[in-house]
């Protein structure tokens, strides 16, 4: 039982605990637990780290150590409602991936890695998304956007409600 629970909801606890029988150690639940919280809150605040640590019989520093290693997890504040990973690795770069990234950021009025002021979208450079057959590509939420062009990027931005003008 977690004393003083502030972040983890009953539902999150249930989802983490449902995975417990899959692993022989509690520590192995660290990544799954971080994902459960991150999926829902789009970040893992420090209080959640402390609570996960208590749940898994770990020191908060151990959970925090794992969290910070994977640059994937946000902590201070949530990422945007949509998180777009734009590939900049070689196969995409050869087909204009970096220009698409630049174009998207310019249109959204942010720098790579930032979130728009209204919190609608975060645009991040990403390494190879394993979809080089569709280069240049982008993963936004669960959707893979294939063979991107600046025009397709505009349509995408419009769909997340962030097109300027």
């Amino acid at each position: 039982m977690i004393a003083n629970r502030k972040v983890l909801t009953e539902d999150m606890l249930a989802r983490i605990e449902a995975l417990a029988s899959r692993y022989p150690t509690k520590q192995a639940l660290t990544l799954p637990a971080l994902h459960v919280v991150h999926d829902e809150l789009r970040h893992v605040p420090l209080d959640a780290v402390v609570e996960i640590a208590e749940l898994l019989d770990l020191a908060p520093a151990e959970v925090q150590d794992t969290l910070t290693f994977y640059q994937f997890f946000y902590q201070e504040k949530p990422h945007g409602k949509v998180r777009a990973f734009v590939c900049r690795s070689i196969s995409c770069a050869l087909r204009g991936g970096e220009q698409v990234l630049e174009h998207l950021c310019e249109k959204a009025g942010i720098k790579p890695g930032e979130t728009t002021a209204d919190g609608h979208i975060t645009i991040e450079p990403a390494e190879c998304l394993g979809a080089c057959d569709f280069a240049p590509c982008m993963l936004a939420g669960n959707d893979l956007h294939k063979d991107l062009t600046p025009e397709k990027a505009d349509v995408f931005l419009e769909s997340v409600g962030r097109q300027d003008g």
Binding site: S89, I90, S91, E127, C128, G130, A131, C132
Partner: peptide
């Protein structure tokens, strides 16, 4: 984990 740039056969 398939993350080697250029690789997508596992997917």
């Amino acid at each position: 984990d398939e993350s080697e740039p250029g690789t997508f056969n596992n997917r």
